[in-house]
Amino acid sequence: MIDSLEAARALDDIEDMTRRVRQSQIYRLSSLLMVLWGALVFAGNLVTYLTPHYADKAWLSVYVLAIGGSVVLGATEKTRRGMSSFDVRSLLAFVMLFAFGFFVETIGHFGPREMGAFWPIYFMLFYCLAGLWFGIAFTVFGLCVTVLTLIGYIFIGAAFPLWMAFVNGGGLIIGGLWMRRS
């Protein structure tokens, strides 16, 4: 027979393990999504840098492929691991995030350079917020990309899209791989 102190310790252990497993599941799916988004964002920035004329079409394709891919990955993970993840609510959340972003972009009369800085920082804000619930890794990643984006926006000239290809696209890929190991 154990005393109440030992029982409380055992329950704390159970709670801690439950939290760690859920965090690990979230990290696993997030890492897959980050690598997918990273590769597409890298391509989008590269096209913007090399052929600015096609930037609009490139970014539209990036968003459609990234959101479509996220839905497919979410559904696959749900089938394989029973983890409810990227569902209709997530899709609607993305639509709302993009709608608000486009609204800000329009009333702010952003140029290509401002848009190149705004979108990553806007998305990284949600990584920073997610970190408050799902693990510090998200916040650290969000802050790093935000700082590097601002450095590029202030100090890098015409090569800013190329800088963003590595900072945002490359950052997402590296962050995703790192999160997989966490």
Binding site: M17, T18, V21, R22, S24
Partner: peptide
């Protein structure tokens, strides 16, 4: 207890790889 708690946190029929369980 930790092994059981980790596995219990998953939906029924879903398992954890040995390597992941070791880390957790």
């Amino acid at each position: 207890l930790r092994i059981m708690a980790a596995l219990n946190a998953l939906p029924a029929g879903t398992g954890l790889e040995f390597v992941r369980l070791k880390k957790l």
